[in-house]
Amino acid sequence: MKRIISVIVENEHGVLARVVNMFAARGYNITSLTVAPIPNSEFSRMTIMSEGDPKVFEQIVKQLYKLIPVYKVIESDDFIEKEMAMVKFPLKDVKDNLADIDAIARCYNGHISNVNDKNIVVSVVDRPDRIDNFLKAMQAKFKNLEIVRSGVSVIER
C-alpha cells in the first residue's frame, strides 16, 4: 500500500539519517523523499513516500515520533500532492512544432524551461499520477528522453 507522511524535524546534522534508518532497518524502500527547511523556524519538513504493510508503517510512524529531533509526523489522506518533473531531449528529435510541446506542458502546469542548440528542457508541476501521464506522453514522442522527478511534496488541505 502506498503511503505518504510528512515529518517535521529539527535542523541538525544526522536527522535525515535517523529518519531514513527507520525505513532501512525494516527493509523498506523509500519511493521518494523531499526535504527543505521551513522558513522562519528551526525545523525542516520531510515528505516521504513509501510502500508497505500498514501495520509496519504504523510502527515506523511511532518509532519516528520517538526520535528526539522529530517534532511531528503528519499522516493524512487529504493531502494536496505535488511533484515536479523535468525532461530533456535533443532538439533534432523534435518533429512537430515547439508550440505543440509547450501546449502539452501547459496541461501539466509547465512550460519549456530552456532551449539551446542541442537540447530542450521542459518542466512541469502536478500530481504524481498526472506526472506519470505526462511522462508517458513524452516517452511516446521522444526516444532519447532524460527524466528528473523531484519526489512528492504535500500539504494538508
Binding site: 546534522h13 544526522g14 532497518a25
Partner: peptide, 15 residues
C-alpha cells in the same frame, strides 16, 4: 555516531 544511532536513545557528535 553512525554505528550507535540505532542502539541509543539518542547520540551526539560535538562539533
Amino acid at each position: 555516531v553512525g554505528i550507535t544511532r540505532p542502539i541509543t536513545k539518542h547520540n551526539f557528535l560535538v562539533k
